[in-house]
Simulated assay, not measured.
Amino acid sequence: MPPSNPRLLALFENVQSQFPTATLGEEKWFLVVLSALTGIGKPNLAADLYLYLTQLPQYSTSGARQILIRRLREVLVKSVSIIGVCRPLEAIFCIDAVTKEEDKEFSYSRQDWKCDEANHQRGTNWLMKLYGENLKPIDETFDSHRDFGWISREITYGLYLSDHHILDGVETELVVLSGIMVQDLPKMTAWHLRACRRIGISMEDCEGIQKCIELVVDFADVKLSPMPRAKDIEHEV
């Protein structure tokens, strides 16, 4: 069923129409919406997003809805590393409450995870792809705050963000950028705009993604600090 709130319905339709689907592909716009709504403090609206999506023709079968659930859940799992556990947990509870029994999805994506050398290397490799030479000063800060260095490599990137079995690298960065920007974090927003460019998202598409995030921000009546734009970090790419 469509959301009963006309502003929420307009939000979904506007993001869907404005998202750079032609270049980034179908079924990615709602990753931005879910991450942004959850990060900005509206996790209960995850249920409305899910119900809206299930009315679309591509999710007309139970099998398709189970794949959808897996992708939405992965957005929220990755969001734990960006915004903490409570809001993503609230969002998944809200989605589960409106999911039909035949559409429930029982897979477990990280049952074989180990905090081992392979995890460390996978996290480090993805960090290097996104940050490159910009990682060095961050690591130097971590030299005197080693707990955060360990969390970054082994957990944030090793466990969460370098796992691309369900959401690929571009999709993961859509989740990360959205979740960071709505928390009013200009410096880290700039880092992940730069990361988006480094993994192949065009400057024009980065701007389009930011405008979609801003639609969620406007819907939530939240005021953010001035945010960097893709053109501002282009010289670092």
Rank of each mutant, 00 (worst) to 15 (best):
C94T: 13
C86T: 14
Q18G: 13
F19I: 11
V85C: 11
C86H: 09
W191I: 12
W113A: 13
C94S: 15
S144R: 13
G132N: 05
G39M: 00
Q16D: 02
T23S: 14
W150L: 11
Q66Y: 02
M128D: 13
K104V: 12
S152F: 07
Q18N: 15
V15T: 07
H120F: 13
L127F: 00
K223S: 11
P20Q: 08
Y52F: 14
P186Y: 04
F93Y: 09
Y59S: 08
L174N: 06
G39W: 02
S202H: 01
T21E: 13
T172G: 05
C206L: 05
A190I: 10
G179W: 05
E173R: 04
R87S: 07
Y131V: 09
A230F: 02
Y59W: 15
E154C: 11
K129P: 06
S62Y: 02
A47W: 02
F106L: 10
G200N: 10
V222D: 02
M203P: 03
I95N: 00
I95G: 05
L127C: 07
G200L: 00
N14H: 06
L53V: 02
W113E: 05
G25Y: 04
L76I: 10
I82L: 10
A195S: 15
V176Y: 01
L89N: 14
L8F: 08
W191H: 15
R194V: 03
R194K: 14
L193T: 05
V15L: 01
I199H: 07
L76N: 08
M1L: 05
V217N: 07
C196P: 06
G208M: 01
L31M: 06
L45N: 11
E13F: 04
M203K: 11
F93W: 06
A230C: 07
T99L: 03
V85Y: 10
A64F: 02
S81D: 06
F148N: 12
T124I: 07
V33D: 05
I180H: 06
L34T: 10
L51Y: 02
Q121M: 06
W150H: 14
N14L: 09
K129A: 14
G200E: 04
N44C: 08
F19M: 08
G39P: 00
E133W: 00
I233G: 00
T172A: 05
K211G: 05
Q111I: 08
T23K: 10
C196H: 01
P6D: 01
D103W: 01
I92G: 08
P57F: 02
F148I: 14
L224M: 11
L45E: 06
K42C: 05
H165E: 13
G123P: 07
T99K: 11
P228I: 03
C212S: 04
S35L: 08
A118R: 12
M181H: 00
N44M: 09
I201Y: 00
E207G: 11
N134Q: 11
I199R: 10
S79N: 11
E234D: 07
E27P: 04
S107N: 10
E140C: 04
A47N: 10
H120M: 12
D147K: 12
V170K: 11
I233C: 04
E173M: 12
K100S: 13
W29Q: 09
L9C: 09
A230S: 03
T21C: 04
W191M: 07
T54D: 03
T54M: 06
Y59I: 03
Q183I: 02
F93E: 09
Y160H: 15
G41R: 08
S162Q: 03
Q18Y: 00
A47M: 05
S60C: 07
L167N: 05
E90L: 10
F30M: 03
